[in-house]
Design a protein around this nucleic acid. Structure first.
Ligand SMILES: [Mn+2]
Ligand SMILES: [Mn+2]
Ligand SMILES: [Mn+2]
Ligand SMILES: [Mn+2]
Lengths: 218, 218
DNA sequence: TAATATAATTAGATTACCCTAATTTAATTT
DNA sequence: AAATTAAATTAGGGTAATCTAATTATATTA
């Protein structure tokens, strides 16, 4: 099997590829992994040897198909465990990430699938992130940022792009809840502040930073 | 925190102390851990430095109080996860050990306690082994080996001393089930073969090896 | 007690993962 | 294009956990 460290590198590369394009830079990886650049260079050479990534000196990395499969498998584990923690053990959505970072490395496809079944084959984790199926297929999300909506447009709150506990707490406190409808009532020209109508006619005002971290679907 | 390796050494030392007396030999540990003696010597020095064990050159090891606490904590995790796997995910009792060996190293007292609650505060794991409480107190078992009973004596089947899948499968197949009553109907002088009456008048004949691996309580 | 056998330790290496300092390669600016 | 800045790699080391071979300490037996 793969080491936890390898798995974490794969996950990091996968996520960087998703957001920043196909080829990932050593420095970006170093930043995400919390290590220094030479450690990354070193690791990438070993991982290339195992055919988990394709690596060309000074030209960045990409995942191989195998690497992608492993990465998505870890993400599947992570999100299923998060569902378990919230649905079964009564954790809050802002408390589960670090535990899932540990649990995602339990090696057993069979366990993952039994857990999936036990949880009722959930489609998304507690933060609205889609759960890959057992074949490593991750449904393409059609959600858009709230910050792209115009006045009087609306949608259903289905995810976040900021996963920090601080932000999630703010959402709880302010009355945002996954699955609820949100309608844009106003946008302040001066500083892009959004006035939103939440479920039950409740109106709240949020900054652009917040509007830019909420995902809506139709 | 402690490394998985350290935790596995602590658990091994704990179990050897339980069965073989207070002081544990390098060779015994090497055998249980599946490594060679010099690796153990090396590890014990590091663990002594961290005050997890007291180690004297060529005189064996003992756990410190801290070491014992950690060991019992791991055992608590292990047994709770085994209950989870059997009770919630429908695993069989002979399938859960290796998974629990991984899950026991998830570091979170809070998770352990929430899991305990979710499972209804079980007293024993699927093999009848007692689950330490959150203070690290492990109830002293009063169970005895079936092989110590005389003819016509009886008890309740509450545990095993052989945890191998092979043995557990044999028990399933032969009709043994945790919690059932067992009565000794006969003991063959020649080879110590036991004739037992299981639940529902069913009679079975088992070898001494089997009789010596079953724990009964009254 | 002396001789022998067993157990444990030391010596010297290896692998995975990480570091700092120095150097090289690539990108940007003048 | 040359100079400068930024990014990446190489060189050389460190620690945790393991190994084999050689040595020393303990236990057993004659
Ligand atoms: Mn997460
Ligand atoms: Mn999540
Ligand atoms: Mn077990
Ligand atoms: Mn067990």
């Amino acid at each position: 099997m793969h080491s936890f460290t390898e798995e974490n590198y794969l996950k990091a590369i996968y996520k960087l590829q998703e957001t920043n394009g196909e080829v990932v830079a050593t420095s970006a990886l170093a930043q995400v992994m919390g290590v220094h650049a030479p450690s990354v260079t070193d690791m990438l050479k070993r991982m290339a040897g195992k055919k988990l990534v394709t690596y060309q000196k000074s030209k960045g990395v990409k995942l191989t198909e195998r690497g992608r499969q492993v990465a998505v498998g870890i993400i599947r584990n992570h999100r299923l465990w998060e569902v378990f923690l919230v649905d079964k053990l009564d954790y809050k959505w802002d408390e589960v990430h670090d535990l899932a970072e540990q649990l995602e490395h339990i090696h057993s496809e069979d366990l993952t699938n039994k857990l999936d079944k036990f949880l009722g084959f959930p489609k998304a984790d507690p933060h609205g992130d889609p759960i890959p199926d057992s074949n490593g297929v991750l449904p393409k999300s059609k959600a858009v940022l709230l910050s792209t909506l115009k006045i009087n447009e609306q949608g259903t709150f289905t995810g976040v792009t900021d996963h920090t506990a601080a932000f999630l707490n703010y959402l709880d406190k302010t009355g945002f809840s996954l699955g609820d409808p949100i309608k844009v009532k106003g946008i302040e020209e001066y500083d892009q502040t959004y006035t939103l109508q939440l479920k039950g006619k409740k109106e709240v005002v949020v900054s652009f930073k917040v509007a830019n971290s909420l995902l809506l679907s139709y």
